[in-house]
Design a protein around this nucleic acid. Structure first.
Length: 716
DNA sequence: CTCTCTGGT
């Protein structure tokens, strides 16, 4: 019987590279805890099939595992494989997750189950936070991070097994990773394949470039054989066939979960107003159903806030004894302390009603939910590849999404889900959500693929192909930025440099330009700040105060310079407090942010990105110099970098975007909303109620013809 | 005078 990583019968434990630290097994307290863990592990549904699962992995190079929620697949399977000696020769089992928190929490759990210190045999690696070491044999990470690793180690030679978890979510990273794994697998199963073979051309068109090398370390690279790669796709829903077909009819196994029964209720008739319908249902549950908290899925912040108000209003109409409802909103841009409110225990005698976006579908698991109210809509990103515009639209959920939502009512006991549409409508829904790769800008994906040696991107074996127009648009954009040559190859050195930076390609280009304009210091700050969610935080009730605070940072010419001012003000604030330990910095900065109406989560993120990319450009040998007070130079550099996003003022005060010819408005959040200069560059164009451009800097039209003549000579 | 669902390097 398997015992976990510290089990005695496991011969792998005696191998020097994987020997474990002596455990704390002495005290009875920890012993009983250990026994509890073992018991809990054995009681998981998956424990009964451990041997069979290991056999399946031995027999097949690719395996699809459909594990229902609560099966324990994410924590247990890597341990089973470790015990079955899949980490021979110091190889690692990699497990990818779409989200950072999942990688961290699951690895902590597994380290505990194994009785090892986190970061030793079991660890995680996510951007800005690497808890792995040379000892690590089970490594949880984000799928995006593994894609980055592939740029440096195209064979993924340190891994014996890659497990792709939550594959049904079909994020861009998952989809690209699946294509990559398919190729790596082919390459590694060729018998004469060694880690340092150079430039092997694969079926899918990947050329493994020897120059990038592998990270083999102390072992002799010349003779190190790369063994076949085992790939395991884990999915919660029933799309096993899609994955199986994609991997040439790979074997799929199903694992029972542990989920309580959720009764699904539909309305008799279509509901003309789903918000009103949601309100009625919430009160019906409150007045007629047994105790238990309610989770309501809404499309966005505005909707959540208005429903919260309406609930409060209607509560006042109820008799005093029935007003025992506590409403709790949650959405991603809500400050984290306020997000935490959903986890607080419901006060005795109260019913908690959580109003959530789809953050509560997967990202946040809220305990105690007995009832789910699902109006059947979701706000989704969509992309028009012809115009190059992203927009957010409210659309019906998919069947899989509806299923995921209802499942949130059955985690601790039987529950009920109220779908606010008739059953006949459910049948008409799409089976699953359209994969993200079909509805986003692909410039980054394509740059990455090119860097991995995939020359024929249109021919790449995606699990589902993105629209051709979308690929063409991105190829064109990359060409205009100079990342690709005329025959669509990655350019030297620009394209390669751009691919190395973990940024939107246009930002990478701006950094490289900036080193020539002597304003890389400023541009590093700019792209870090542009890479995060909105920096300014303006609660409706303190709008005036927030505006005054923002004015303190503002530059009359530029939102970009305003962002630099905020970043520098924070730096200066911290520098003044010399001699104080670093742990306190975080807290003090948070306070400063609050006083200045700045979103501290966003600022911290920007500071992390800044540190990371500064390291990257330093390694690339770019000159990190500052333009000092000469912001004209900096604005010229912006014009040279963002020339594809230039716009001219129209007589009525709207703008015409030069590249696409579209008529757009300056977003009211911009410093330049009133000033309306003649010529500007903008950072992004988004369609909401209007076509808005955001983050804007005033430039001179002549700079465009001077600095981007290849693009602007034909313009009048 | 608006406000944007969620993730990620």
């Amino acid at each position: 019987m398997a015992q976990g990583l510290n089990g005695e019968p496991n011969p792998a434990n005696r191998a020097p590279s994987t020997s474990l630290p002596s455990t704390d097994g002495g005290s009875t307290g920890s012993l009983s805890r250990r026994q509890l863990i073992a018991q809990r592990r054995k009681s998981l549904p998956i424990a009964d099939v451990e041997k069979r699962l290991v056999e399946e992995v031995r027999k097949h190079d690719t395996l699809i595992i459909v594990g229902e929620t609560g099966s324990g697949k994410t924590t247990q399977i890597p341990q089973y494989l470790w015990n079955a000696e899949f980490c021979h020769d110091g190889k690692t089992i990699g497990v990818t997750q779409p989200r950072r928190v999942a990688a961290v929490t699951v690895s902590k759990r597994v380290a505990e189950e194994c009785g090892v210190e986190l970061g030793k045999q079991v660890g995680y690696s996510i951007r800005f936070d690497d808890m792995t070491s040379g000892l690590t044999r089970i490594k949880y990470m984000t799928d995006g991070l593994l894609l980055r690793e592939a740029l440096l180690d195209p064979y993924l030679s340190r891994y014996s097994v890659i497990i792709v978890d939550e594959a049904h979510e079909r994020t861009v990273h998952t989809d690209v990773l699946l294509g990559l794994l398919k190729d790596v697998q082919k390459a590694r199963s060729k018998s004469n394949c060694t880690a340092d073979n150079s430039n092997i051309q694969l079926g899918n068109g990947i050329i493994f470039n020897k120059e990038l090398g592998n990270s083999g370390g102390f072992k002799q690279q010349n003779s190190q054989k790369v063994l076949p790669l085992k790939v395991i796709i884990m999915s919660a829903s029933l799309d096993a066939r899609v994955f199986s077909d994609y991997f040439g009819g790979a074997r799929a196994v199903h694992i029972q979960g542990r989920q309580f029964l959720v009764e699904i209720l539909y309305t008799l008739h279509p509901q003309p107003d789903y918000l009103d319908s949601a309100l009625i249902t919430i009160f019906q549950i409150h007045l007629e159903e047994a105790p238990g908290d309610v989770l309501v899925f809404l499309t966005g912040q505005e909707e959540i806030e208005s429903v919260e108000r309406l609930i409060q209003e209607r509560l006042r109409e109820l008799p005093e004894g029935k007003r025992n409802v506590l409403t709790v909103p949650i959405f991603s841009s809500l400050p984290s302390e306020q997000q935490m409110r959903v986890f607080a225990a419901t006060p005795p005698g109260f019913r908690k009603v959580i109003l959530a976006t789809n953050i509560a579908e997967t990202s946040v698991t809220i305990p105690g939910i007995k009832y789910v109210v699902d109006p059947g809509f979701v706000k989704a990103r969509s992309y028009d590849p012809v115009k190059g515009i992203e927009s957010l639209i409210v659309i019906p959920t998919s069947k899989a999404q509806a299923l995921q939502r209802s499942g949130r009512a059955g985690r601790e006991g039987p529950g009920k889900c109220f779908r606010l549409y008739p059953e006949s409508e459910f049948e008409k829904l799409e089976a699953s959500t359209m994969p993200e790769i079909k509805r986003c800008n692909l410039s980054n994906v394509i740059l990455q693929l090119k860097a991995l040696g995939v020359d024929d991107v249109t021919g790449f074996d995606f699990i589902e192909k993105p629209p051709r127009a979308s690929i063409v648009k991105s190829l064109e954009q990359l060409f205009l930025l100079g990342a690709l040559t005329e025959d669509c190859k990655l350019s030297h050195p620009l394209g390669h440099q751009m691919a190395r930076l973990p940024l939107d390609p246009i930002y990478s280009k701006a950094l490289i330009q900036a080193s020539q304009f002597n304003c890389l210091v400023e541009m590093l700050i700019t792209v870090a700040m542009l890479s995060v969610e909105s920096i300014f935080y303006a609660p409706a009730e303190k709008l005036d105060e927030a505006r005054t605070a923002m004015k303190g940072f503002s530059s009359p010419d530029s939102d970009h310079i305003t962002l630099i001012n905020v970043f520098r003000a924070a730096e200066e604030f911290l520098e003044k407090r010399t001699g104080i330990n670093k742990g306190k910095d975080e807290k003090i900065l948070k306070k400063w942010c609050k006083e200045n109406f700045i979103n501290s989560r966003s600022l911290r993120h920007a500071r992390d990105i800044h540190r990371q990319i500064k390291g990257h450009v330093g390694q690339m040998g770019l000159q990190i110099s500052s333009c000092g007070e000469d912001m004209l130079q900096y604005r010229r550099c912006l014009a040279a970098s963002f020339f594809l996003n230039a716009a001219l003022r129209q007589p009525e005060g709207s703008y015409r975007a030069l590249a696409s010819g579209q008529v757009v408005q300056i977003h009211p959040s911009s410093i330049l909303f009133r000033a309306k200069p003649d010529c500007i560059i903008f950072n992004e164009l988004v369609q909401t109620n209007n076509k808005y451009i955001r983050s804007i800097t005033r430039i001179d039209y002549l700079w465009l013809t001077e600095l981007a003549p290849q693009y602007y000579t034909m313009e009048k």
